[in-house]
């Protein structure tokens, strides 16, 4: 396999790297707290994309439900025809945990807004440094 085919054939992983860097940039460089949270969400979904890409197969593999599984199974079961369900189940948990993390972060953002009346990080730091102004 040539180098170009190697790069193009793994396009899912390149998209995962791009999305991860977009989320990481938003978490570091943006000053708005909601923008940071959006960056965190994008980062999370990039990791989920990576794991689901591990589990998927090219060439017509389907979900792991064995045909005629309740009757008499006469044919041999080929593992190459079925996807690996383990990363899917792990990422199911990761999505739910991610949403609860987002909920806690939004609650903290609302508390910060009630105290400082702004969501910009630099303005909050200015208020914290000069509290009696």
């Amino acid at each position: 396999m040539g180098t170009i085919e190697f790069i193009i054939g793994k396009y899912n992983y390149w998209v995962y790297i791009i999305l991860m860097m977009v989320g990481f940039y938003a978490m570091i460089a943006k000053h708005n707290l909601v923008k940071k949270l959006i960056g965190m969400n994008i980062f999370q979904w990039a990791i989920i994309l990576y794991y689901v890409s591990i589990g998927s197969k090219k060439g017509g593999a389907t979900i792991p439900i064995i045909q005629n599984g309740h009757g008499e199974v006469t044919h041999a079961i080929e593992a190459a025809q079925y996807l690996n369900p383990l990363p899917h189940v792990l990422m199911l948990t990761a999505i739910v945990v991610g949403v609860s993390t987002t909920g806690v972060a939004l609650a903290l953002i609302i508390m910060i807004y009630r105290r400082f009346h702004t969501l910009e990080e630099d303005e909050i730091i200015d208020i914290l440094r000069a509290p009696n102004k």
């Binding site: 979904w45 998927s56 899917h88 990422m91 199911l92 739910v96 949403v99 909920g103 939004l106 953002i109």
Partner: peptide, 27 residues
Amino acid sequence: EMGAVDVAFTEAAVGAGVSTAFFIAAV
């Protein structure tokens, strides 16, 4: 499209629906 249908509908219900509603409420 990648065959992870369980992840797909959890994402549609929880990730896209509830998460977006939380964000809009907070904003």
